[in-house]
Amino acid sequence: MIPDPYLVIVIFVGVALVFPIFPLILAWMWRRFFQPPKPGAEKNATYECGVESLGEAQIQFRSQYYLYAIIFLIFDVEAVFLVPFAVAFTGLPIGAFVSILVFLLLLLEGLVWAWSKGCLDWAR
């Protein structure tokens, strides 16, 4: 008799569940019966290089950083679309060339806007 082809997947899922859960149970039992947990202020500290931890790990970044994100996006998106376009350039019709030109102009407009707002003057 031929076994069900999905039986392999069922076995696979079973092993994938047992493999991580068994050591976790083992570790839990080890903690329960032998090794008492000993947490502490230093042990649970954020920083782990021997230097005293100051403040929390979850800090907020200032919202002014959105400008950097936008400028990054301009060049990033440009590269993502331009590289495949350049690779396939010789085999593309004239319409594709026009549309990528429009796309570039849109991004260029964003760059000009950011430039005129003074976002590119890094040393402020």
Binding site: Q35, E42, V51, E52
Partner: peptide, 12 residues
């Protein structure tokens, strides 16, 4: 102090 702190941060 840094060495003692490192020791404290090591797990048992």
């Amino acid at each position: 102090p840094q060495i003692v702190r490192l020791y404290n941060q090591m797990p048992d």
